[in-house]
């Protein structure tokens, strides 16, 4: 199984990197960009075949290491 983890900054947390990317996009002539927020995407190959157990395990990984929940949210998808 494969887990896909999206880690994003919480609302209200300033994202200077997202702002810099936004600024560069405008510099390249891309109009109509209202806002940019940067995050992380992590793919994890898992042994086992129980999606519920995998989701619980990957959520624990997020809490302990992959995300800093002071500033970040995470979302876990499991591909069977």
């Amino acid at each position: 199984m494969k887990a896909r983890v999206h880690i994003t900054l919480k609302n209200g947390v300033l994202d200077p990197q997202g702002k810099a990317i936004h600024h560069s996009l405008e510099g390249l002539g891309f109009d109509g960009v209202d806002d940019v927020r940067q995050g992380k995407f992590i793919e994890i190959e898992l042994s086992g075949n129980d999606p519920d157990a995998a989701r619980a395990s990957v959520s624990e990984m997020c809490e302990k290491l992959l995300a800093n929940t002071v500033i970040e949210n995470y979302a876990v998808e499991i591909d069977d």
């Binding site: 200077p16 800093n68 002071v70």
Partner: peptide, 10 residues
Amino acid sequence: PGVLMRNASL
């Protein structure tokens, strides 16, 4: 408590 993020100036 808290966290150290990327400098505001980058």
